[in-house]
Every structure is written in C-alpha cells, then in structure tokens.
C-alpha cells in the first residue's frame, strides 16, 4: 500500500484520538504547572501546586488516607481475588463439560455497572430492610447482622469484597487460559513419577503461571488506583461513612469540581499528575520485572 493511501486510512482515527485523548492527556500535565484564578490561567507556578498537595488542607489530611485506601484496595483485591481466581481456575481445569458454563456464570457480575453494583449491595446490606441481615438473623447469626456499610471500621472491606465478587470471573478466565497452555507432558510425567497433585501444582504449574499472575497484578493495580464509580455509589463523593471509603479519584473529583477553591484547577491537576505517575510508573516497573522473569525462564 502507498504511504499516502495508508495515511488516508489512518487519518480519521488519528484526528479523533489526537483531539479527544492525546491532547487532553498532555495538557493535563501542563495545567499542574501554572497558577490558576478560576478558569483563567496565570503565570508559571513551578512546583507550588504539588507542594500544596502536601502542605494544604484538604490534601494534607485527605490525601494520605485516600492513598492508603487505594493501596489496601489493591492488596486486598490481589490476595482474595487471586487466591479465589487461581483455585477456581485449577478446579475448573479439565472439567470440559461444565467449565464454559461456570466461567460464564462467574463472569456475569463483571458486566454490571459498578454504580449498579454499589447501589445493589447498599440495598442488600441495609441494616433495617436488607435481605443479608434478615437472612443472618433468621439462621441464628444475629451477631453478624451489623450495619457493615455504616461502620467506618468495616465499610472499606465491604467495598473491597464487593469488588472482588464483581471481578473474580476475570482472573478465572485468564488463569484458565494460562492453565490450558501448561504442557500436558510435564504434569503427566511428574504424576507418573509419583508426585502428588499439590506437588505438581507447586513445582510445575505455578511457576509456569507466574507471567499470567503478573499480568493480572498489573491490571489489578491500575484498576485499584483508578477506583471511582464503585466507592462513589457506596459512600458518595466524600467517602462516607467518615471518609472511610475515600479514594484518590474521589478526592480529585471533589477538589476539581466541588471545592470552589480559586486555584482548584492547578491543585487538582497536580493531584491527577501524581496519580498518573503512580499508575504508569507502577505498571511500567511491574512489566519490566515480568519481562526479566520471562527471559530468565526461557534461558
């Protein structure tokens, strides 16, 4: 194909992507380095917007808490979701008849909007009319019929577990695909040599799954750092109760659109830049480690 023809085919996508994604993404950073008076841009601000994130209310108090919640969200999701996902995928492996059916059922909640999921579980866990607490009372577990979402000590964990419930079908699918790629001769040979299922899994299957686990970790990291809609549905933009479900994206939304601060654009852009660096840097570093690991496995 001639270069000019090729470019003609590319033009519409380039324009659309350039105008609505690349340009805003690049300017997002530049916003953070200027002083702002409402919507009018003033002089160059150096790093003063960034230092405001450390020194000034509400960032001084809210940012560390929110960031901690993002990290807990990531760690909790990794531990619970990966464990369940990997176990389920291992159990499903070789169940040729039911695997597809079950994989599909597990993936169903992923389809549902996080907003719907958040409101649905708010209704289900409602202390007065919630079916969950009604059921717990009925089967004699009154001591667990608590206002799970109303208590600042438990609310964050409800958010995390609900998110795991929604997304678990994803690692099940990915680990299922990765397990399909483990050469049968290897596991078969080990079994013939008298290795137990557990040994085969630890010594052969698991090491071969590490690239898939790494990929899931990177995607989970990005997902956890961006968390917005689900916590919004549970605790509104302020992370109720008492800021216990606050996340960095919620703080960003509040400071950009709800704060009324005169330099809101500058500080919230600085916050977006920091979050971007965390996400991009984290994802890049993890991918690099993974590649190195893959090279070592191959050699």
């Amino acid at each position: 194909m001639k270069t000019r023809t090729g470019l003609a085919f590319l033009a519409p996508a380039l324009i659309l992507f350039g105008v609505f994604v690349l340009y805003p993404m690049l300017t997002a950073f530049s916003y953070a380095f200027f002083e702002w008076q409402g919507t009018s841009r003033q002089g160059f601000a150096g790093l003063s917007n960034f230092s405001a994130l450390v020194n000034r209310a509400p960032f001084k108090t809210d940012l560390p808490t929110a960031l901690l919640h993002n990290v807990l969200f990531f760690v909790g999701t990794m531990l619970v979701q990966n464990t369940i996902g990997l176990s389920v995928a291992t159990l499903l492996h070789r169940r040729a008849r039911t695997r597809r059916m079950l994989q599909t059922l597990y993936a169903m909640p992923y389809l549902v909007s996080p907003i719907v999921i958040g409101y649905l579980w708010t209704l289900l866990l409602s202390p007065t009319f919630g079916p969950v607490n009604q059921l717990l009372t009925k089967i004699g577990l009154e001591q667990f019929a608590l206002p799970w979402l109303g208590d600042p000590k438990t609310a964050l964990w409800v958010v995390i577990l609900v998110s795991v419930w929604q997304w678990v079908g994803f690692p099940v699918l990915l680990y299922g695909a990765a397990l399909g790629g483990v050469p049968e001769e290897l596991t078969e040979a080990a079994r013939v040599d008298g290795a137990s299922h557990g040994q085969v899994f630890r010594k052969i299957t698991f090491p071969l799954l590490i690239p898939a686990i790494g990929t899931v970790s990177v995607l989970t990291f990005i997902f956890a750092m961006e968390a917005f809609a689900l916590p919004f549905a549970f605790g509104g933009s302020t992370g109720n109760p008492a800021g216990s479900t606050d996340f960095v994206s919620l703080l960003f939304y509040r400071s950009a659109f709800d704060s009324g601060a005169v330099d809101a654009i500058g500080t919230s852009s600085a916050l977006a830049t920091v979050l971007f660096l965390i996400i991009f840097g984290g994802a890049m570093a993890a991918t690099k480690v993974l590649r190195r690991h893959e090279r070592r496995m191959a050699s």
């Binding site: 994604v21 993404m25 916003y31 750092m225 917005f228 960003f252 950009a256 977006a272 979050l275 971007f276």
Partner: peptide, 8 residues
C-alpha cells in the same frame, strides 16, 4: 488512565 484527563 484517560479519566485523569477529565479537566482538560
């Protein structure tokens, strides 16, 4: 993470 570009 294109959601971070919401202001621009």
């Amino acid at each position: 993470p294109i959601h971070l570009a919401i202001l621009p």
